[in-house]
Design a protein around this nucleic acid. Structure first.
Lengths: 155, 155
DNA sequence: CTATCTGCAAATAATTTGCAACAAA
DNA sequence: TTTGTTGCAAATTATTTGCAGATAG
């Protein structure tokens, strides 16, 4: 959506930052791939198609910027890469109800929404006095396809 | 407990691995600090007191070994270090009900137990066919002490 | 014009690896 | 013995940083 892009430009200006082609291209690369979880290198490769002169350092710097502006979410799968995905349009529900299922077999990542922690978090506030403001939930296991494939192979 | 140490030795032998002072010392370093979350470097510093000749590479190799044997749990706080802690005595409940509260102010980590995900996981199995075998839950926020400190300072 | 960005190359820093010497079985 | 382990140093690799030139406002 071009609307989204205008919002981004305004957000940059509002923070005394400059609107550059590189920044727009990087945000677009992620916007065009909702639900995908790209590494810095992968974003670099995508953006390089339209922008062959871009440097990897710019990608890293822009990713950090977008993350601070809460436009993208970080995801660390402990495989040596930090991954990024575009946030939901509604910033309120951004990370808070957005969790990940990670298949240990094929490596695919499935997102799901759930507010299961709301309850727990108020209980923690009451019993421990700890005020939870954010959370990260990763569920590891085996996806439908991989379970089926295994069943087929073992026959 | 020396009992624990004997179990470890047996486990090593059972897997065709050798019992070495270094391995025992590293497991002890973690066993002596339940609930602490040590980096490889921190473990190295602890073990070096009793074992000045140990190399950092051995610490890394042993950590990996202990992790594969499910004797220790990994914790990644996205601060550039991977941390490790001794698992609970009961291997069944090891990670599964063990979650972390991370204070964004003081950096302290508080563990808590909860089986809140059991429910969700069976729901996921039913609706998506995804079989969850493990999970990682991190809750970020502010601990009681830091909340109090802030209140005091703002007066 | 001038403050911010960019691309490059070099620096950083956690972790891994090759290998010869060493220690457990 | 023989097989696995260690310590060292070098390699690897994701990410960061310094800086001079480029670009947005």
């Amino acid at each position: 959506m071009p609307n989204n892009q205008e919002q981004f430009k305004d957000l940059l200006r509002k923070n005394g930052l400059k609107v550059t082609n590189q920044r727009i291209a990087i945000l677009e690369a992620l916007s065009d791939r909702p639900g995908e979880h790209l590494t810095a290198e992968e974003i670099y490769d995508v953006v390089k198609k339209d922008y062959p002169d871009i440097g990897l350092a710019t990608v890293y710097r822009t990713i950090q910027l977008l993350s601070e502006l809460n436009l993208i979410d970080k995801l660390n799968l402990d495989d040596g890469y930090v991954r990024y995905e575009i946030g939901s349009e509604n910033p309120e529900e951004n990370c808070h109800h957005h969790h990940h299922l990670i298949c240990l077999d094929c490596g695919n990542i499935y997102a799901f929404q759930d507010d299961l922690l709301e309850n727990l978090e108020s209980r923690i506030k009451e019993t421990l006095g700890f005020d939870v403001v954010n959370h990260e939930v990763k569920l590891y296991g085996y996806c439908k396809e991989c379970i089926n494939n295994r069943a087929v192979k073992s026959n």
